[in-house]
Computed example of a mutant assay.
Amino acid sequence: MKSFNFKTIFRKTAKFLFGIFLTNEDLPYSATEFRDRIATSPLRWLLHILVGLFWLLLAYIVFISLRFITTPDTLYNVTARSEIIAIDSFQNSAFVPWQLDGVTRYSECGSETSLVSGQLQVAQDTSVYIERIGTDSVWITLSSATLAPVGFIQTPNERIELSDCEAFELQASANNSYTLPIDGVMTIGGEVKEASAREPILHQGSVAISDKGAWSGQYYQTEPYALELGDKFFIQNPSIQSSGFIYVDDSPGMQITFNGKGDAGAIQRYKSEDIILKNSIWTKLAHDESLLFLWLFLVAAFSLLKFVIRVNIE
């Protein structure tokens, strides 16, 4: 049985490493002869070092490319004018408190009203719906599927405990605008229903995909995808809570902006199939200039090194 010593292993490894430079070349010798010619070259150690560095560079580029391409999370930047947004807690994380001044409270979502001012703290397992049709009042509805209290209002004098369903009416105008920060799992836009004359819907908006470059670490952004009248948008399988804010003034509906991460963005359109927005492999390659530069540099290094080897062995 033939034994493999260090020299044999080195020669076979060198044959493998140098063999790649025989591709697309019409040379009159085999990979073994190619290796042996390099071994007798005056610059053989320099060629070995350069080829070793080339393979290390190739392994590094392949590694970061695979890690970059297979990253499931996608960052979505959403801007829209909508008449409704639904917000749920992400993994029982806390909601952002809101400061309310002179708003009308409908206790237990009923007809009993009162004016309240204070800081509204929403409980974690609460669903939040913010709605404004046209230039009407802004309605904030809080509900709990478990019939648990939806939170409390902290006033300067007391703490008001809320029931399992609460509604608040805010009057917005050019001189009385609101900015409401939002955290959680967002769904913007409502459903267009045939049996209803008027439902809150999304007016317009856009969704842009962002991601970090594989090498540069800088964020890039794709061309925004337009949201049309009546669309509904949400992020599938979110990995973090979305964050943003709502701005309300005398303009119709509400101006909403937020960003979040997840597997895909879903657009539901009336009587149409869902439109799925994902950061595909081709999208990543097309927008990540640093990754393209690395691959182009590798091709240039391959061509130059192949030329240097041929000059030294022929």
Rank of each mutant, 00 (worst) to 15 (best):
R67H: 10
Q171F: 14
R81S: 06
A301Y: 09
L294W: 15
L17K: 15
D136A: 14
T104N: 04
N279E: 09
K232W: 06
W215M: 09
G134W: 06
F21R: 01
G52L: 09
R11N: 13
A59E: 08
E83H: 04
A39T: 11
I201V: 07
S89Q: 05
S107N: 08
T13P: 00
Y29W: 14
V122R: 06
G244R: 07
Q124L: 08
T23L: 15
L22N: 09
Y220R: 14
D249R: 12
A80E: 04
D249C: 11
I267S: 02
E108T: 12
F34K: 10
V192A: 05
I235V: 14
A31R: 11
K284D: 08
V185E: 05
I281V: 14
S65W: 07
E158R: 07
P238F: 02
K15Q: 15
W295K: 00
S196R: 12
D231V: 04
Y220W: 15
S143M: 12
V299T: 10
R159A: 03
W139N: 10
L50Q: 15
I256D: 06
N5A: 04
T70N: 11
I61T: 11
V62W: 08
D274T: 14
G102I: 03
A80M: 04
F245I: 00
L46A: 10
R310I: 12
N5E: 01
D274G: 00
F168D: 06
S143R: 11
A286N: 14
R11S: 09
L292M: 13
E314A: 11
I235N: 04
S41C: 12
E112T: 11
A266S: 11
T135C: 07
A214C: 02
S107Q: 09
V207G: 01
C109R: 07
N237D: 09
I130C: 07
I235G: 08
R105W: 02
F302P: 05
Y106H: 11
I267A: 01
E112A: 12
V51K: 07
F18W: 15
K232G: 02
D263W: 03
K193T: 02
Y76C: 01
P42V: 05
Q119E: 15
I87S: 05
E273H: 11
K278Y: 00
E166W: 06
T257W: 07
T187H: 10
G189Q: 02
